[in-house]
Amino acid sequence: MQPIAIRDVSLNYDTPGGKVQGVTNVSIDIDASEFVCIVGPSGCGKSTLLNIIAGFLTPATGQISIGGKPVTGHGMDRGVVFQDFAQLFPWRTALGNVSFGLEMKGVANPERDRIAREQLRLVKLEKFTNSFPHHLSGGMQQRVAIARALAYNPSVLLMDEPFAALDAMTRDDMQRLLADVWKETRKTVIYVTHNVAEAVYLADRVVVMSAHPGTVKTVMKIDLPRPRDPLSVEFLDCQKQLMAHLGHNTNGVAH
C-alpha cells in the first residue's frame, strides 16, 4: 500500500468538462494504509480534489504523488467508487463487472475468475455473481462497485460519497462492511463525504475543508478504537468536535 502526498494543489477555472468547484493550495500527506475522510460543505471542492487525485482532472498548480510516483492521469494504482449506482456496466453481470479491471490488466481466465469471485465474497455477494446490476438493490450495486475497484489490486481506493444515495439502515451496514474490507485489504483510502457520523466511524483522520476558497481548514485525528461504537460517549464527542470544525451549531444532538 502506498502513501499519498498532495502538495499545493490548486484548480480554479472552467475546464472543458464543465465548471469546477475550485480548490486552492491543498496539501495533505496520507500514510500507507490510512483511512482519510474529506468532509466539508457543498462547494468546498472535495469531489474536485478526489477527481484530481483520480486523474480525471489536472491541477493548475501543485503535484500529487502516490508512493513517490507523480500522478499524471488515471492509473491502475487507484480504484474509484462513485456515488451513482449507474457506475456499474449494465451489460455485465456482477462477476463481469468485477472482472473488468483484471481483463484490462491482461489477467487470464481461471485466475481472473478466481480473483473476481474472491472479491465478491469479500463484499458478501458470492450468491449474486451471475446477476445483472438491474436485479441488484442499490446497496448491493455499491458493494459490487467496491469489489470492482478492489479487484485489480490498486494500492489506493478513492471513494466519492459512495453511500450517500442509500437509505440510512443500508448505509450503516455498508459502513460496517467497508470498515471490515479495509481492515482486511489495508488499502490507503480517501473517502469524500458530507456525513459527519460516517467520517467519525470510518476515518483515521478527517480532513475538514471550507468553501470559497476550497481549502483545508483543519485536520482532525480520530483516535477511537475499532470497531467503533456510534453510540458511545467518545464517538459522540468526536462528532461534536468535527461539527464545531465545520461551523455547525453543536447545541443539541449530532445530526
Binding site: 483520480a54 486523474g55 480525471f56 488515471h74 492509473g75 491502475m76 487507484r78 480504484g79 474509484v80 462513485f82 451513482d84 449507474a86 457506475q87 456499474l88 456496466f89 451489460w91 473488468f100 479491471g101 481483463e103 484490462m104 490488466k105 470492482r148 475497484a149 485489480y152
Partner: peptide, 23 residues
C-alpha cells in the same frame, strides 16, 4: 460515469470503445 469507471480500471481507447461505448 461508465467511461470514467472503465478508464480508471485501465481501459485504453480501443477497449473503451469495444467494451463500453458499443454495448
Amino acid at each position: 460515469i461508465w467511461v470514467r469507471s472503465a478508464q480508471s480500471m485501465g481501459a485504453d481507447d480501443k477497449r473503451l470503445f469495444r467494451y463500453v461505448i458499443l454495448p
